[in-house]
Design a protein around this nucleic acid. Sequence first.
RNA 1: GGCGACGUGGCCGAGUGGCUGAGGCAAAGGACUGCAAAUCCUUCCACAUGGGUUCGAUUCCCAUCGUCGCCUCCA
Length: 451
Amino acid sequence: MLHLYDSATREVRELALREPGTVSIYLCGPTVYGPPHLGHGRATLVYDVLRRYLEWTGLHVRLASNITDIDDSIINRANRENRPWQDITHKCEAVWFEAMGKLGVARPSDVPHATEYVEQMVAMIGELVDIGRAYNTDDGVYLSVESVEDYGLLANQRLSDMIEGGGDREVFGAGNKRHPADFVLWKLAKPGEPSWPSPWGDGRPGWHSECVVMSLDLLGEGFDLHCGGMDLKFPHHENERAQAVALGKRFANHWMHNGFVVDAEGEKMSKSLGNVANLLDLMEQYDPRAYRMLLLQSHYRGPVTVGQDNIDAAVNSLAGLDAFAARTSSIDVAEPDADVLAKFRDRMDDDLDTPAATALLFDTVRRANIAVDAEAPEAGSLIAAVHEMCTAFGLVLNAGGDVPADIAAKAAALDAARAAKDFATADALRAELQADGWTVETTKTGTQVRR
RNA sequence: GGCGACGUGGCCGAGUGGCUGAGGCAAAGGACUGCAAAUCCUUCCACAUGGGUUCGAUUCCCAUCGUCGCCUCCA
């Protein structure tokens, strides 16, 4: 069974399942007010790999991931561009899922929207007020963090230490709060702002409430895993948890956080890649699979640099895998090599060690190539194992696909010329095909073209 | 000020108290090929610095230098 680092206990431990055979996961999704960036891409890819791997091992995965479609950033942009806020959220959500599609990130099982859950949030906030753990001020309702026993668990900091170091930052709503770390659950609307009714006045929910309500509604108390980017650990996840704890509910059993995307060579990157911080730009300029490949070769908890060299290396390594898929596409597959798959699971179960698992993938590719060259009997099972691992990774290999009749004819002509030792014609034909964007490879069964 | 991460070969990026340590990319040489491509083989002598613990450290501890993240709305 999968062992994962748990941010709450700060150790790698087994991901215990509330219900055998099924994994319930909540992933904090995007606030839809702009195009997805590389950070979004990393998070969604990391959890897509997690999900596919779990499914590949035979588990049923229920993945809920929200869309935050009401938020200050959205309102600000709407005001700035003088257009309806829903216009922004709808458009951005469409762009989001289009980008996810290109990345090969499967759509979550559930995609709840904050605006669909306002009533439930109001009800929850009401409960917190009733039990004296939240309080009303003249600009909203706040949660009293001092009423939460172990506030700071995820941040791994004591409340007092956090406050001391606050720096020069302005404390939001400081004048009204009982404690500087108290956070807003309900924001009273200013004139012209979108709002929903509540016992405390018209307004909108604070950021941290939606995930509590949605995760508990869709997945139920004590769900298995809550995940998101490292930057969400505090305050977002801390504050989600605080609300659940304040309500006396069991929340996530395990917390997983992925590392950041780093642009170590900021200047260089922007020069060579343009505004590569934007995920859409990256996918436009490179095979979208390259980002997945790059992330697979790094560990999910560490920082990862996304730069030209990095992406190029990933693109080139994919070319090797595609070539493998192409040259083995006509070979009968057998039962996947059990030994390889067992090793694969060992590595993946060890805190999702995809770098070790990809090393195994490449190693298996080489072994399979050797077997294919030798026409050895184990080729089929090794090839099958490679495809199994790719499935678990969510990596789709390109074996070439359909070849138009005229191209196939040229390839046949090339073979004929070679057979006749008319190498000048053969070379010319090959150059033509290559100029057309085709990869031309000589195999035992003749010239194979793909792209 | 508090909490935390990290410094590995040309680049990226794993990992381990003891034949000096994956994998990918790049480069070089070789096999194969009419030539290529694909494939395979080989090579490319790397673990920030200074101490300490140890029979032995890249891996453990301390210090130093350097990089970075979080500490109220950013995946």
